[in-house]
Amino acid sequence: SEEEEEEWRRAKERGEEIIILGILWKPNDEEAERRIKEALRRV
């Protein structure tokens, strides 16, 4: 969703871990980033 995407962007800017759509994303975690982008597209 729009607000999840916004939340994720803010976490990326701050360089902090975030759990979004049930996926743990850490800074520079390209695999998780790809999965999150896929999940955001499906929503």
Rank of each mutant, 00 (worst) to 15 (best):
E16W: 11
G15Y: 05
R10D: 03
E38G: 05
E16Q: 11
I36A: 02
R14A: 11
E38W: 02
A39F: 07
P27N: 03
E17F: 10
R34K: 11
K12N: 04
I23M: 02
R42Y: 08
E6Q: 07
K26W: 05
R9I: 10
I18N: 02
I20F: 13
D29S: 05
P27W: 05
R10Y: 07
R34L: 12
R35I: 07
I23R: 01
E5G: 04
W8N: 00
G22L: 12
N28E: 09
L21M: 14
R10H: 08
K37Q: 11
K12Y: 13
E7T: 11
I23A: 01
E4K: 10
I23N: 01
A39L: 12
E31R: 04
E38Q: 10
E2D: 13
D29Y: 03
R35A: 13
R41Y: 08
I36Y: 02
I36G: 02
E17I: 10
P27Q: 03
N28G: 15
E17P: 15
N28Q: 08
I36D: 01
W25K: 00
G22W: 10
A32V: 04
I20G: 00
A32N: 02
R41S: 10
D29I: 01
A32H: 01
G15S: 06
G15M: 07
P27V: 03
R9H: 09
E3W: 15
S1W: 15
E16Y: 10
E5K: 04
R35P: 00
W25T: 00
E3Y: 14
L24H: 08
E31D: 12
R34A: 13
E33H: 04
R14S: 10
L40Q: 02
E2K: 13
A39S: 03
E33F: 07
R41M: 09
K12G: 02
E13Q: 12
E5D: 10
W8T: 01
S1V: 15
E5W: 14
I18D: 01
A11G: 03
W8E: 00
V43P: 09
W8K: 01
E30F: 11
N28V: 02
I23W: 00
R14W: 06
K37W: 13
E4H: 14
P27F: 05
L24R: 10
I19V: 13
I20C: 12
E5A: 08
G22S: 03
R10P: 00
L24Q: 06
K26A: 09
E5Y: 13
L40V: 03
E7F: 15
I36E: 00
E2T: 15
R35F: 04
W25R: 00
N28A: 07
R9Q: 11
E13R: 08
L40H: 03
V43K: 15
K12V: 09
R14K: 12
S1I: 15
I23K: 02
P27Y: 03
E31Y: 06
E7Q: 14
W25L: 01
I36P: 00
E6G: 05
N28F: 12
W25H: 00
K37F: 12
E4A: 15
R42M: 11
E16F: 11
E31Q: 07
E7W: 15
L21G: 03
E13G: 05
K12R: 11
E7P: 04
R10I: 08
I18Q: 03
E30V: 11
E6V: 06
R34D: 06
I36F: 05
G22N: 03
E13Y: 08
R9M: 10
E30H: 11
E38L: 04
A11E: 02
E30I: 13
E6P: 04
E30G: 08
R14M: 09
L24K: 12
I23T: 03
E3H: 14
E17W: 13
E4Y: 15
K26M: 07
I19F: 12
E6S: 06
L21H: 09
R42Q: 12
E3Q: 14
E4V: 15
L21P: 00
I18F: 12
E5H: 08
I18A: 06
A39W: 07
P27A: 02
L40G: 00
E7D: 11
E6M: 09
R9D: 04
K12A: 06
G22C: 12
E6F: 10
I20R: 02
I20N: 00
I18M: 04
E7I: 14
E17C: 14
E31V: 09
G22R: 00
S1T: 14
E6C: 14
A32D: 01
W8F: 14
I23S: 00
R34G: 06
R9N: 09
K26N: 06
W8Y: 07
E4W: 15
V43F: 15
R42I: 11
R34T: 10
K37N: 14
I36H: 00
L40I: 10
V43W: 14
E17M: 11
S1E: 13
I18C: 14
E5T: 08
E2A: 13
E31G: 06
K26D: 03
R42N: 09
A32F: 01
G22F: 15
R42C: 10
E4R: 11
G15I: 04
I18E: 01
R34P: 00
E31F: 05
P27L: 02
L40K: 02
E33L: 07
E5F: 12
E17A: 12
E33A: 07
I20T: 01
E31I: 08
E17R: 07
L21I: 05
R34V: 09
D29P: 02
R41P: 01
W8V: 02
I18V: 12
S1F: 15
L40A: 02
I20Y: 05
V43T: 09
S1Y: 15
E17Y: 10
E6W: 12
K26V: 11
R34E: 12
E3N: 14
R14Y: 07
E31A: 08
K12S: 05
E5N: 09
V43I: 14
I23E: 02
D29N: 04
I36R: 01
E31P: 01
L21D: 02
D29R: 03
A11W: 11
A11Q: 03
E33S: 07
A32Y: 02
E30D: 13
N28W: 11
